[in-house]
Amino acid sequence: METILQEIGIETYLYLSALLFCIGVFGLLLRRNAIVMFMSIEIMLNAVNLMLVAFSTFHQDAAGQVFVFFSMAVAAAEVAVGLAVIVAIFRNIGSIDVDQLKNLKG
């Protein structure tokens, strides 16, 4: 059986994943809004997830897909905590610009 993977090749998945990851990285570096940075992190995470799934199919090994489920679950938890932190910060300083978050500097 010819899967979609064989049809378009693993490379395309890898390129997409790398692209998504880079978008995430640049978003993280260039934006200062905590929510946007958060989203960028999620994009990076998902880029990795995509690659894991792609390789999992390529190697005919389910372990990769299991990992993806894990990481999605962890990411969801992380988002919950992270958003809560951001809300708390907003309540404290009235902004979610990370440049203003320097209270912990030594």
Partner: peptide, 17 residues
């Protein structure tokens, strides 16, 4: 060394990347 720890999140991320 202290100067590296300037509290700027962007800088930390940059260093990280």
């Amino acid at each position: 060394g202290k100067k590296l720890h300037n509290g700027n999140l962007g800088f930390y991320l940059f260093a990280f990347v």
